[in-house]
């Protein structure tokens, strides 16, 4: 077998190649996460992990569970579509533990203007005012109750 003896060194390199490949396959077997490929080419468990992230905004219905009176007032007025946390901020902690976590006080001077300051860029049918001229220096809630802002509404206490 003269032919083999003179080409056996090629097998040595091939063996090196095969060893690297085998090592790769062994390592791969242990390293690839178990849920990889469960739904597609990704780690299936990542879906659950993303879904388990903490919630900060409790959501309108959580607020209305307890604050039934305010929810009813709001529902009857112009701000029916504005959810509680849009002004009051993220309050999931408050919803989970109402006694110990209290929502911060709000500054209507900032809040109202954020939406209602006049600008040519806003839709024409959206109520907007030039804040400086509109109230003559009075704060918004002198005339408008935030939960039911139309002036004729006396429903809110």
């Amino acid at each position: 077998m003269k032919n083999f003896r003179d080409s056996e060194h090629l097998l040595r390199f091939a063996f090196l190649f095969a060893m690297v490949l085998a090592l790769f396959l062994i390592v791969r077997h242990f390293v690839v996460p178990k849920s990889f490929g469960e739904y597609g080419h990704y780690r299936g468990a990542a879906i659950g992990e993303t879904a388990a992230r903490p919630i900060h905004f409790a959501g309108q219905s959580a607020c209305a569970t307890c604050h039934t009176d305010i929810a009813a007032t709001k529902q009857a007025g112009m701000h029916a579509g504005v959810h509680c946390e849009a002004c009051h901020g993220p309050l999931a902690k408050h919803a989970a533990d109402p006694a110990s976590v209290q929502p911060p006080k709000l500054d209507t001077a900032v809040l109202c203007v954020r939406c209602h300051a006049a600008s040519a860029a806003k839709p024409k049918n959206f109520p907007q005012v030039a804040a400086a001229e509109h109230s003559g220096g009075l704060v918004c809630e002198t005339c408008h109750h935030p939960h039911s802002p139309a002036i004729q509404s006396e429903g809110a206490k």
């Binding site: 879904a51 905004f57 959501g59």
Partner: peptide, 23 residues
Amino acid sequence: CTLCYHRITKGLTTACCENCPTG
């Protein structure tokens, strides 16, 4: 954006939708 996946899978809407005052 995750489309607030942690919220929508629990029946809540996204944080941006929850807080959009004009819908």
